[in-house]
């Protein structure tokens, strides 16, 4: 029997040294058993490698940055939809989620499906809100404090012990071993990302990630925990291995049950030497290592597309433990005309 064909728009084609998840998501979708796909790449910059991977991406259109505003993005997506009849869009950048969550009803009316967290879920998990998030949903998070004023730094040692982590509201984190270092990082990070700055308790231990899928009603559709084996200087996993840790799965299920999270996600976890788990961050999308989930028997992107299309999806319950992913870089040979084509016309 011929499988139905779904047209899927995918962003995050920047498979570079700090990679976007798009190419991994597409590989997973190409291996879907429940449908065939036509992949429409959605790119921001002309050198995103995914644009030129013609065996994975059927056609690419450039789209405006979220900073251009939701209206502009909508106009571009309408144009692309007219040509490609998009069934589903899978956004893979945090910054895209805000406008896309707002556009969800409009896109739905055009027949374009997504499976995204709600705006409240998206906002609650922001770094500055992590403390409240932990309290509200009864999940252990490292103690943290939001500060606006360099003068309040001096009272920190009464609440935190060194080292402590100094974080920007969107990106950047540094480990400080003294008040002087806290001040330096405060200045450095606030100059780049603005205020506030987040001071966070440093948890000694090992770093773990869980990726998965929530159905929006509190149920766990998929969950795969991974231990990072090799971390690049950008903090990204270069290699990782699937593990079996009931505590981690319990925390994931609790997260989904309590927040009723809808869509894909990645949890960043720390386990201290006493085996206690702390939730450090919630990424509201699939991670770049999502292809490992296919390797261990849970094709999460496929399930996400089926959920978006309104199908009932049977939750995954098992996965292979001890499977590894090792990332590698690959040089493609590309004709200049292709680069000029996407640069000039925004389509390739």
């Amino acid at each position: 029997m011929k499988k139905r064909k779904i047209n899927i728009g995918v962003t995050g084609l920047n498979a570079i040294d700090s990679p976007g998840p798009g190419v991994s998501v597409i590989r997973a979708l190409r291996e879907a058993v429940s449908f065939d796909v036509r992949i429409i790449g959605l790119s921001y910059e002309s050198l995103e490698p995914g644009i030129y991977m013609h065996d994975l991406v059927d056609r690419t259109y450039s789209i405006p940055y979220p900073a251009g505003g939701a209206d502009l993005l909508m106009a571009r997506l309408e144009y692309i939809h007219e040509k490609e009849k998009l069934d589903v869009i899978i956004p893979n950048f945090d910054a895209e989620l805000y406008p896309l969550i707002k556009l969800e009803p409009k896109l739905k009316a055009l027949g374009i499906h997504m499976f995204l967290p709600t705006l409240t879920q998206f906002e609650e998990r922001q770094k500055v809100n992590l403390n409240d998030f932990g309290k509200k949903y009864n999940i252990s998070v490292p103690k943290s404090k939001v500060i606006y004023d360099l003068n309040t730094v001096h009272s920190l040692p009464s609440e935190f012990s060194f080292p402590m982590i100094v974080k920007g509201k969107f990106y950047d984190a540094s480990i400080a071993y003294s008040i002087e270092q806290v001040k330096t990082f405060f200045n450095k990070i606030s100059a780049k990302w603005g205020l506030p700055i987040i001071i966070q308790e440093f948890i000694h231990g090992a770093e773990f990630n869980v990726t998965g899928l929530g159905d929006g009603n509190g149920n766990t559709i998929a969950a795969v925990p991974m231990r990072k084996q090799y971390i690049t200087d950008k903090g990204k996993a270069w290699g990782g291995i699937s593990i079996s840790d009931e505590k981690m799965l319990d925390m994931t299920r609790k997260f989904l049950r309590n927040t009723k999270w809808r869509g894909g996600f990645e949890l960043e976890l720390m386990k201290n030497k006493d085996g206690e788990l702390y939730l450090l961050e919630i990424n509201p999308r699939l991670p770049a290592w999502i292809y490992l989930s296919v390797g261990v028997g849970q094709n999460i992107p496929e399930a996400l597309v089926n959920m978006a299309m309104g199908e009932t999806v049977t939750p995954f319950v098992t996965y292979d433990v001890g499977k590894m992913f090792i990332r590698y870089a690959w040089d493609m040979i590309v004709d200049r005309e292709e680069f000029e084509q996407i640069s000039m016309y925004g389509e390739l």
């Binding site: 910059e45 050198l47 940055y65 106009a75 925004g346």
Partner: peptide
């Protein structure tokens, strides 16, 4: 110049 690290013409234009 067709920049490689910056948004291309389309990306910014229709503001």
């Amino acid at each position: 110049k067709l920049e490689t690290g910056l948004p291309n013409k389309f990306g910014m234009r229709t503001e």
